[in-house]
Write a protein that binds this DNA or RNA. Structure first.
Lengths: 235, 235
DNA sequence: CGGACGTTTGAGGAACATCAAAGCCTGTGG
DNA sequence: CCACAGGCTTTGATGTTCCTCAAACGTCCG
């Protein structure tokens, strides 16, 4: 793996303290002094679309805070198929299983241009002994994992394929906090929903015909309320 | 909810310290002295098949360590369908989302006669300030959640229905650590795999014909190696 | 301009859901 | 002890959904 390492002018303590995603991220509840414990500067990497941050089974020495962009966590099945089990957005923590000294469970691949901060296991452990803040934040991040798994399992892999597509669109709008966002490729949507890209395409075409979604290039705008109603009508 | 409360002769500190599932469970890494912090005795409940431990949306003041039996975590969908998103076995922690002051995410229902210990949020927080052991154990338990979610998403909701059934049987054997175990009802297996109970029944019938699984009453014995081979043959 | 890649659309067939009825345990009350 | 009701499972017949395969179309880059 030879990812591009970024060197900011503000590398060092102030960079972290003022980080735009710090509130949501792992270091969200640390005090300014806590940062003195860390090995600074924190390495930061930039990934382009399709690049892999780590592979399933890799020895895990770091976790990564997503600063911008989006990562997909992918399971490859014997036979070449793949399944996307989670999406990571700014503030999320990738490779969280490293905290148990386990190899990475899945492959992390950038779906857009993405920036991540690398946090070594050693730093996490140092901080953990120093302050209870980190444990609280960790718990919150794990909770997020469970929350997502719940949505994935309860809503995105169940029922008619059209419903799944609509639920995914609503979910993406929810996490993006806007009804206009970058649409994953048909194949990726299929890998999230456990349906084929052709079925995704057909469903999207139908939704466009019904004026519930509008696309231009990669970006999509959805009629959030309309889609919710569409869902309720066939539940 | 009026569950049956159990009163053991050994209620108190010794009961916990000597608990059969303590090593895997939340208190696994506590020292004997740590127990002095707790409000003892720890309340313990017994649930019969079908009884509910808590409902989705209930205010969550406790987590529960499963001592024996099995719980299912269930999502109910608008329309009466339901989906099982996780199974909890002895040593697992139910209601883990309570640790973030969130209401319970799903309904917990006993699939067999089941015993649980109730641990109040207050106790967890007391311990957490006193010792870093708990945080480590919590992290391990959250990891388990992620692991399971991964298996669920990657293996149990993907591919032909027969493959899913076989993967579920192998999974159940793995967690039970024996190839002979209590078989969930057809409807429950369907709710885990996102297929109908009829399809489950047909698949099981076929596997019995092929001498890969044997049932008597509720218990099932599987030809573990045979099923693995069966899976590999059609991957 | 041409090639690679992702999307769209179509036709056909397989897999699974649905509906329905019969069979099988289990517990209950006569 | 047997009869019977209720729940769960089994099996069958039918229909729909969605996957598969295939070809055409569009878009991005060299």
């Amino acid at each position: 793996m030879k990812l591009i390492k970024i060197n900011h002018a503000w590398d060092g303590k102030d960079g972290c303290v003022n980080c735009a995603v710090r509130k949501q991220a792992l270091f969200g509840e640390l005090t300014r002094d806590d940062f003195d414990v860390l090995h600074l500067p924190i390495p930061e990497f930039r990934l382009s679309v399709g690049e892999t941050l780590y592979y399933a089974g890799d020895a895990a020495n770091s976790v990564y805070t997503v600063r911008s962009g989006m990562l997909k966590l992918v399971d490859f099945l014997p036979g070449g198929e793949y399944r996307i089990v989670r999406l990571l957005r700014p503030g999320d923590l990738a490779g969280i299983e490293a905290l148990n000294a386990r190899p990475y469970l899945n492959q992390a691949i950038a779906m857009q241009d993405t920036e991540v901060c690398q946090i070594s296991l050693a730093d996490v452990e140092l901080l953990n002994e120093r302050t209870p803040h980190l444990c609280r934040k960790l718990t919150a991040l794990w909770q997020q994992v469970q929350n997502d798994a719940d949505i994935w399992l309860g809503q995105l892999t169940v029922g008619a394929s059209a419903k799944r597509v609509v639920r995914l669109l609503l979910y993406l709008a929810d996490v993006a906090e806007t009804s206009e966002f970058l649409l994953p490729s048909g194949e990726d949507m299929g890998a999230i929903l456990a349906i084929t890209k052709e079925t995704v395409s057909r469903t999207m075409a139908e939704l466009k015909r019904q004026k519930l979604v509008f696309t231009e290039n990669q970006t999509v705008r959805i009629d959030y309320a309309g889609l919710k109603q569409w869902l309720d009508a066939r539940s």
